[in-house]
């Protein structure tokens, strides 16, 4: 039956791959895998993938309709998420059968028990300009730290990016654009070809309970300045 195969690869990364035949391969001839993006906590040796796939339950069946008819088959959930221009697919491993869904933004950045410390961070995606932030102490993701910013700081990023994007030496699409839609920070990239110019939304960032924004989490490589 049509399914995504959920497994842990040799690096410990939690992956999904197609069970279609012929297989889905990347440009290097390897089986194409979608890697889960999650946190690492080296001090305790834990990571967001500790609930890894059970070898007896490791198929995400795409067409199975649950007894509860309010739950859509996974493939319908995925297609509906694409149609709604969502950016994320999630599986809740906390109970069986697993819950799943799509979202336009990512809710969980690190576990609730993380402590947050003041820092200054920079990312290549933002020309390594420094920004004040709080970072989750000891947690890492996307090869960097996981920061949260005030709305004022995000507003500063937006004007910095506007300036970078309007600079004559900047290539179209070299830097992202960020814009507030109400309380939501919308992150996009310009895509240019000879015949076409369009803006592709890649993520949305909602303010959390403290009004802070984990902008670029798991998308941009943030490091401490």
């Amino acid at each position: 039956v049509a399914a995504l195969i959920w497994e842990q690869d040799e690096t410990g990364s939690e992956t999904l791959r197609s069970n279609g035949s012929p297989g889905w391969h990347d440009e290097t001839g390897q089986l194409h895998r979608a890697h889960a993006l999650t946190w690492q906590h080296p001090a305790s040796g834990t990571s967001g993938v500790h609930d890894h796939a059970d070898p007896y339950r490791n198929l995400v069946l795409l067409k199975v309709r649950r007894r509860d008819r309010s739950i859509h088959p996974v493939i319908d959930t995925i297609r509906y998420g694409v149609k709604r221009k969502h950016h994320w697919f999630w599986i809740d491993t906390g109970r069986w059968p697993y819950a799943y869904g799509t979202a336009d933004h990512r809710g969980e950045i690190v576990p609730a028990e993380a402590t947050w410390i003041r820092s200054r961070v920079e990312a290549p995606a933002l020309e390594r300009l420094p920004y004040p932030a709080v970072i989750a102490e000891g947690y890492f993701g996307a090869d960097g730290v996981l920061p949260r910013f005030t709305r004022d700081t995000v507003t500063g990023m937006i004007s910095d990016l506007d300036e970078l994007n309007s600079h004559p030496a900047t290539m179209p699409g070299e830097f992202p654009t960020v814009a507030f839609h109400g309380d939501i920070a919308v992150i996009s990239w310009q895509q240019h070809s000879l015949s076409d110019e369009r803006v592709l939304e890649i993520d949305r960032c909602y303010p959390d309970a403290e009004g802070l924004y984990a902008i670029g989490a798991y998308q941009w490589t943030w490091s401490i300045t």
Binding site: L37, V74, W90, I91
Partner: peptide, 20 residues
């Protein structure tokens, strides 16, 4: 706890699995 993937990576895989 939730595991998160980019939808843009998962949706082509899912369509591939369904259509082959």
């Amino acid at each position: 706890s939730k595991l998160w993937w980019r939808l843009s990576e998962v949706s082509p895989l899912a369509e591939h699995a369904v259509h082959t």
